[in-house]
């Protein structure tokens, strides 16, 4: 089936099998391997991207469902060498260790801050309930998002 979609501002068109997940489409067809797959049950959030501005789990979406949509992946967050304020805050606050959950965390953080530019610690923690991190204990991820909010609001 033919699909056309925009990923990180670029237009793509491909023939895909209906069973191809959006996560696999991004990874295997577009070679955007920053979107990771960590589970089978829509639980871990490593595959989070934004679809028409909303954070979604790309492992639980078929590529065909994204036909005509506007997608941003982790690769689309930085502006060239200049990191997005969320990415920058993750670096400054040691909000990542092995880096595997990080793309999903950053994309979810973008949704949290879009809907709530001044979140409390509790709201950030609640907003991250769909993302597992096994390395950081979330402590520095929460701090990173707190600082990102400040940076974006400046």
């Amino acid at each position: 089936m033919r699909i056309s979609l925009t990923v990180n501002g670029k237009q793509y068109s491909h023939d895909v099998e209906p069973r191809l997940s959006l996560a696999h489409y991004l990874r295997e067809v577009l070679n955007l391997t920053g979107t990771h797959i960590g589970c089978d049950t829509s639980s871990c959030g490593a595959c989070t991207i934004t679809l028409n501005g909303d954070a979604v789990k790309s492992c639980t979406l078929l590529a065909v469902q994204a036909d005509g949509c506007e997608i941003v992946t982790i690769e689309g967050m930085a502006n060239g060498a200049e990191l997005h304020p969320i990415q920058e805050s993750f670096k400054e606050n040691h909000g990542l260790q092995c880096g595997f959950c990080t793309p999903g965390m950053v994309m979810t953080a973008s949704d949290i801050l879009k809907n709530n530019p001044n979140p409390t610690e509790e709201e950030i923690r609640h907003g991250l309930e769909g993302n597992f991190c096994r390395c950081t204990g979330y402590h520095n991820i929460v701090k990173s998002i707190q600082q990102a909010a400040e940076k974006i609001n400046q």
């Binding site: 955007l32 391997t33 920053g34 979107t35 992946t73 982790i74 690769e75 967050m77 930085a78 990191l83 990415q87 993750f90 670096k91 990542l96 092995c98 880096g99 595997f100 990080t102 793309p103 950053v106």
Partner: peptide, 9 residues
């Protein structure tokens, strides 16, 4: 961090 944060790990 840079490579991980940009999805380039």
């Amino acid at each position: 961090d840079a490579r991980f944060l940009k999805g380039e790990g």
